[in-house]
């Protein structure tokens, strides 16, 4: 994974007179503008799908911080998504806390839960961590169904929640408001993530991934960084889960099964490991591909996930973002031949 960045074009490469950095900024601005205009352009159902993409992007960024940047495995992030979703649902169901306040609470709870799960996980590497989180993913629906927790979780029936309306008399439909609410959270969390990953902390995470012993020699507290990363990653996924619960207006144990965790894994591999933009590409993939494939047969989405997972690892281990980078590099050389040619 250490060679992920080797395909980046040289800093001076220009396309049509603008630097790559400039192009990236333009792309980001265009994406944001489109995202803001979307609720007024598409139908209610399409907006729901778009909103789900936005929510999944947060979860995928969370998993990517852990797996892509820090090199720790999780096949069980569906569990944290479930904790986030259930926290919001239970708070809305049992207490009078306003919906917007439940999101940070869900995030906080997942931060603690992830940190605690990360502590023993520190001793585990590679396969072992994959195994422990695999078990967590499979056990999650069963724990949520457990009879003694029925009074909170509603058991197999789950919990129905009502979606919020637009506040301050804004002229927005409920789903439009919710979309902007989720989008605001996404932007906030991506800005936080960007600040976290580009500086000293980000370099420490990558160093631990690439060579833990060398990282420790450089004065990085591996244990602290790894468990905190687990917590932060769980927090992102938990917030996504909380927003997802508002979006679905319903939580039930069977929507948080093993395959949810697998979706996240597929998402980060397809989008691109150790890449923030990859979270979006991955989210688009895991939201739309099963929707299309479902029309063929019930088994098709899973089969496609499996085949795509293997194909990406085999042919394109850097994901969509890696593919774009290589394309960009080729294009850069083509449009503006560097001094070397």
């Amino acid at each position: 994974m250490a060679t992920l960045d080797s395909s980046r074009p040289a800093a001076g490469a220009l396309f049509a007179g603008l630097s790559l950095r400039r192009w990236k900024l333009i792309g980001l601005a265009a994406t944001l503008a489109t995202a803001c205009a979307l609720p007024f352009l598409v139908s209610g159902y399409q907006l729901l799908l778009a909103n789900q993409v936005v929510v999944y992007a947060i979860a995928l960024l969370g998993l990517n911080i852990l797996t892509g940047y820090n090199g720790q495995f999780s096949l069980g992030h569906g569990a944290f998504y479930a904790i986030g979703a259930y926290t919001t649902a239970i708070l809305l169901d049992k207490t009078g806390i306003p919906y917007w306040a439940t999101i940070p609470l869900a995030g906080g709870l997942c931060l603690v839960a992830g940190f605690l799960f990360g502590l023993p996980a520190l001793r585990l590497e590679g396969h072992y961590l994959a195994l422990a989180t695999f078990a967590l993913a499979i056990a999650t629906p069963q724990l949520l169904k457990y009879k003694r927790f029925d009074f909170l979780t509603g058991g197999v029936q789950g919990i129905v929640i009502t979606a919020p309306d637009a506040p301050f008399g804004l002229p927005l439909r409920g789903d439009q408001w919710l979309y902007f609410f989720c989008l605001a959270w996404t932007v906030l969390l991506f800005v936080i993530g960007w600040n976290l990953l580009r500086g000293r902390t980000g370099r420490a995470l990558v160093a631990i991934r690439d060579h833990p012993i060398a990282a420790a020699t450089m004065g990085i507290d591996n244990a602290l960084y790894k468990s905190v990363t687990f917590g932060v990653s769980a927090m992102y996924t938990g917030i996504a889960g909380a927003l997802g619960a508002l979006l679905a207006q319903f939580v039930s144990p069977d929507s948080f099964d093993f395959f949810l965790s697998v979706r996240f894994l597929v998402g980060i591999v397809v989008g691109g490991l150790a890449s923030m933009a990859g979270a979006f590409f991955g989210a688009i993939f895991i939201e739309f591909v099963p929707n299309i494939a479902d029309q063929i047969s019930k088994a098709a989405p899973q089969a496609i996930y499996g085949a795509v997972l293997i194909a990406f690892i085999f042919f394109m281990p850097t994901g969509v973002v890696g593919m774009l980078r290589i394309l960009g590099a080729r294009l850069g050389r083509f449009v503006a031949p560097g001094p070397g040619r």
């Binding site: 495995f73 490991l273 088994a299 499996g306």
Partner: peptide, 24 residues
Amino acid sequence: KAPVLSVVAVFIGLLLIINSLSGA
């Protein structure tokens, strides 16, 4: 000889394919 991440991802992919094959 691939890194652990790739190997685990491939096995999960296999799991999904065989599982969906049984279902289909």
